[in-house]
Design a binder for these strands. Structure first.
Length: 384
DNA sequence: CCTGTCTGCCCC
DNA sequence: ATTCTGC
DNA sequence: GCAGAATGGGCAGACAGG
């Protein structure tokens, strides 16, 4: 019964409505709740895999591999000439993407459907992908929308379908849903496309596809079970994402903020800096707040408590919840990529930074330098 | 009118 | 987004 | 295994204050 209620909620996303149906028609009523075109539904989520081989082993045998585009997830609803677009968190962004609306209206060959894809900013020069921040400028825009449609064109790559002409198709296996999608999508080059997909059971072939995705400057790939159904709002089932981690950086802690909630009483996040070899200064390049343990489960774990005690002697001063710390402690940090930053003195920031280890063997003078960040930044924009 | 700061069932 | 932890 | 709660960069918009 719980499952049926939950399922109904994932489709309707409205407790009141679920309650009403339960009152009037009971469990039977909830069982038959259908997608309403124009009303967003909870999206299926993916889990992480270390690499292609692991992903394929987990899913077993033949899999579908799709490019994971670096953009925004979008759910498109179509009913006749009417189009709605929703984000992953079910925010309504139809107004922000009039260009997408037009492509969807003309190129979804059906009366009614709900499809899903990834929207990303496309270069006007060579159709290559632009950084996520560029697309961000369009997502919650209220003013100058048309101007930005011109300045920042987007491409969508569709990868799933949940509803087609009166029928829910979420219980069909992925390979069948893909066939339906291929049947109804009229592709428009560099604008309205299907997600590039490879079906294979060969790890080598899959690895090659992954490398190609990276060469196209995309984030990585999704590895999917061909038999999997579409499951709302949960990180279960047959989708695994694989994306690379950049080379670890060793950076200096020069500040922190006191944590809240679970982390109250400890320093909960840490200001990182690289060394400017020209001046000897330490220049901020971001903050770090994940990857550190709350509890010690094994001897090599580093806890918030330990880190807080370790840094306390070097606190220079505090203002509000912010703390400045003398550069003493060096930490290893993983991240996805280096971004240009308007917010940090170094001019760079890390995307998705996470703590790996304390470098007890390193002094602040041995930390990675500004010129190394510059070098790595240029390297990634050239190779990807 | 500019600037800084804060918020967003925000996007990632 | 990533990661950790309680259930 | 899953859900919830900590935290990251960065964007547009709203608002307060000078």
């Amino acid at each position: 019964a719980t499952e049926i209620v939950e399922n109904a909620y994932n489709i309707l996303c409205d407790f009141g409505e679920v309650a009403e149906i339960a009152m009037e028609r009971g469990i039977e009523g909830l069982k038959h709740v259908k997608i309403k075109v124009g009303r967003p539904i909870k999206v299926m989520l993916a889990e992480k895999a270390k690499n292609i081989e692991d992903a394929m082993k987990t899913l077993g045998g033949r899999v579908a591999i799709e490019i994971k585009y670096d953009g925004m997830r979008a759910q498109i609803h179509k009913s006749g000439d009417k189009i709605w677009i929703y984000t992953r968190r079910l925010e309504h962004v139809t107004k922000q993407f009039p260009d997408l609306v037009e492509y969807a209206r003309k190129n979804l060959k059906c009366k009614e459907c709900v499809v899903e894809g990834e929207v990303w900013a496309v270069s006007k020069k060579d159709f290559s992908p632009l950084p996520f921040q560029v697309l961000s400028q369009r997502i919650h825009r209220k003013y100058k929308i048309e101007k930005m449609v011109e300045e920042i064109p987007v491409q969508i790559n569709l990868f799933d379908i949940m509803y087609l002409d009166g029928k829910m198709v979420i219980d069909l296996p992925l390979k069948e849903r893909r066939k339906l999608l291929e049947r109804i999508v009229n592709e428009v080059p560099h604008r309205f496309k299907l997600a590039t997909q490879l079906v294979t059971s060969d790890v080598k072939e899959a690895e090659k596809f992954y490398q190609q995705a990276l060469e196209l400057k995309q984030e990585g790939v999704m590895v999917k079970n061909l038999e999997s159904k579409y499951i709302f709002g949960r990180r279960v089932g047959g989708w695994l994402k694989v994306k690379p981690t950049a080379e670890t950086l060793d950076l200096v802690i020069v500040g922190a903020t006191w944590g809240t909630g679970k982390r109250a009483g400890w320093l909960g996040s840490f200001i990182l800096a690289c060394r400017d070899e020209a001046t000897g200064e330490f220049l901020e390049c971001g903050m770090l707040g994940t990857g550190i343990k709350e509890k010690k489960t094994s001897p090599e774990d580093v806890t918030f408590e330990e880190l807080t005690e370790m840094l306390k002697p070097y606190i220079e001063f505090q203002r509000g919840s912010e703390v400045r710390i003398r550069p003493k402690i060096v930490v290893s940090v993983d991240y996805q990529e280096i971004q240009r930053s308007p917010n940090y003195k170094s001019g760079f920031a890390l995307r998705f930074p996470r703590f790996i280890a304390i470098r007890f063997d390193k002094n602040p003078e041995d930390a990675d330098t500004l010129s190394r960040l510059e070098y790595l930044y240029k390297l990634q924009s050239r190779s990807k």
